[in-house]
Design a binder for these strands. Sequence first.
DNA 1: ATTTCAAGCTTGACTAGTTCAAGCTTGATC
DNA 2: GATCAAGCTTGAACTAGTCAAGCTTGAAAT
Lengths: 142, 142
Amino acid sequence: MTTPLEPPAIAERELCGLVNGLAQQIADHVRERAITLGLTAAQATALREMTGPMTMRELAERMSCEPSNATFIVDKLEKQGLIERRAHPTDRRAKQLVLTLEGNVLRERLLELLVQDSPLAGLTAQQQRALQDLLEQAIIRP
Amino acid sequence: MTTPLEPPAIAERELCGLVNGLAQQIADHVRERAITLGLTAAQATALREMTGPMTMRELAERMSCEPSNATFIVDKLEKQGLIERRAHPTDRRAKQLVLTLEGNVLRERLLELLVQDSPLAGLTAQQQRALQDLLEQAIIRP
DNA sequence: ATTTCAAGCTTGACTAGTTCAAGCTTGATC
DNA sequence: GATCAAGCTTGAACTAGTCAAGCTTGAAAT
């Protein structure tokens, strides 16, 4: 059943495992840091993606989840006073999400925490650049 | 509030975003392929990590989750006849997890599917090797 | 204008996944 | 032997996520 004659497939399996491993470490890292701020991982992701005012749909797309799920997450952030649903200036159907002052402060703290002790800290700046180039090429843009 | 004087931190934020992006693509890929085999993503992960007989705790560690969660996942796999809980040969407290014949077959099919059309297919063999080197160095081994 | 259809969001029901605390059996230590 | 720790399971609780249904609104066609 073993196929020692196909080194490329085996290597790619390993590579997938490595990427998965790194992804998991990053996910764990995000979760740990988020918890210290009283956030869950999903809430932290939402906060991270809130680079500016946007609609629910935009946020959902950035988080690659369904709008109904974004509703759920934004509910939590709203209860904590981190985000606001405002009337969209041009489309009355849509909500415009805006971070509160508190939300912005927490977002900055989160981003700082995420960089500190990141799983990528073991690489030199040059290596990080090389990794970035490879990842940019690997990631399929739809 | 913005700090334009710290380019390295900004770059690392981007890099984190890239790794997260790749991780999400891989996760989506895993989920899609798993579904075609009648598995959920978590079940597929468990199957992938079952490189040989191991205890519940070992599997939980490989999946980086709590043992109780492993119980939950293994229950599902056991109901599908893919895995067996056997008595551990030396420790009567522990269970020894073993894939059934069917489980092994499905695992091989899964691993093949995961390699096909992987998000990493856009890289040449040489680039994949370079990526592997970087990831191996980046990943912290605890 | 009016109708029709699509877009944006929410709600409710449901499922999977996850953690935690509690409890049981067994192994190891003193 | 008694005690404590390890391995696993159970049950309760919660997060996250999907899907279908429904409401409001915008856009497009008639």
